[in-house]
């Protein structure tokens, strides 16, 4: 188990290594664009308003991201309705919803790693036809477009607009196999770089800091560890490779949950298995935009499959989960 601090150091080391190609090069290879975009998402300082649309749902959020000596800080703030705010400081996430009290969660801080592993880049090229498309403008910035067209119908097509200089994702569209838009998001306004980006939110209020400290004391007994759980997925779709199998604590669930993570280089599928005494309150299929969730009861366990894949894929995966002993 690598500590979050050493993970952060690893990330910094990788970041420094990549400093040579921070400036996105239009002649970069197609798959390299994704790598650059991931780096830009973690190391660029920016603040802007994102408009998200999926079906009849449209939302505006302010997204701010700061990378400094203490690591990475990001914030999503809903601009309409009740308070809806998520703040991440490295592996600590604070969630504020409506008038609910702040919720604190521990998050693994290696979000950056899976998509950068060479085998993931290989998977990306195997599963998608990657092409660079027209130059464009998004939120007054020059953007380079990259299209990830799947070679089968087990995953969605993605078109991404990356800031030509930094590689930061400015706009993204997800399309289904018929070319229909599943969801899209774009910055309507964004400020990239500069010192005057608001950082007041990074430090939690005194109340929140106390809450955070109490929570972390409890959480230090849990965490996540790699396991061989004995659970078997028989119908993982072609092109998805297993990244992790973990036993971890999630939010306020008392019993640790098994999480298996698969990726095709761009989209991910997670399988969660938890012991339950009652039937789930929300059973079956649900979804928002490109993300789908499917629940299924297997004996005393609840299997939940989450992924940015078509609905039938999460169902197929969930239906093939069985306990093979171990």
């Amino acid at each position: 188990m690598i500590s979050p601090t050493s993970k952060w150091r690893m990330y910094l080391a990788l970041t420094c290594l990549s400093a040579f190609n921070v400036q996105a090069d239009p002649l970069m290879s197609d798959a390299e664009w994704l790598r650059t975009m991931v780096f830009a998402a973690h190391q660029t300082n920016f603040s802007g308003v994102v408009v998200y649309q999926s079906g009849g749902r449209v939302e505006m959020s302010r997204i701010t991201h700061v990378a400094d000596g203490d690591g990475e800080h990001e914030r999503m703030e809903g601009l309409e309705g009740e308070r809806r705010e998520v703040i991440r400081n490295n592996d600590k996430v604070r969630v504020y919803l409506g008038d609910q009290k702040v919720r604190v969660e521990n998050r693994r801080s290696h979000r950056v790693f899976p998509s950068l592993l060479p085998e993931q880049m290989q998977a990306l090229k195997e599963n998608y036809l990657i092409t660079q498309s027209e130059e464009d403008r998004v939120a007054e910035y020059h953007a380079h477009t990259v299209v990830f067209q799947p070679k089968d119908n087990l995953r969605y097509t993605r078109k991404m607009w990356a800031h030509s200089e930094s590689g930061l994702l400015l706009k993204a569209v997800v399309l289904d196999e018929h070319g229909r838009i599943i969801e899209q998001q774009a910055f309507s306004q964004i400020k990239i770089g500069g010192k005057d980006i608001d950082r007041k939110w990074i430090k939690p209020s005194e109340d929140d800091a106390l809450h955070l400290a109490r929570h972390l004391e409890q959480a230090s007994h849990s965490g996540a560890e790699s396991v061989v759980s004995g659970w078997q997925i028989d119908a993982i779709p072609v092109g998805f490779k297993k990244l992790f199998e973990l036993r971890r604590s999630i939010s306020d669930k008392k019993i640790p949950v098994v999480q298996m993570v698969y990726s095709d280089g761009l989209s991910g599928i997670s399988i969660f298995i938890e012991k339950v005494s009652q039937a789930p309150t929300k059973a079956g299929l649900s979804g928002q935009g490109a993300v789908h969730v499917y629940n299924r009861r297997v004996g005393d366990y609840l299997v939940t499959v989450v992924g940015e894949v078509p609905p039938r894929v999460v169902i197929q995966v969930a239906d093939s989960v069985r306990y093979a002993g171990g």
């Binding site: 693994r108 290696h110 950056v112 999480q259 989209s267």
Partner: peptide, 17 residues
């Protein structure tokens, strides 16, 4: 679960917050 999933998803990684 969505949050726990997004820690590992490459596309969520690109999208950041």
């Amino acid at each position: 679960y969505l949050m726990a999933h997004q820690e590992f998803s490459p596309s969520a990684d690109v999208q950041g917050a």
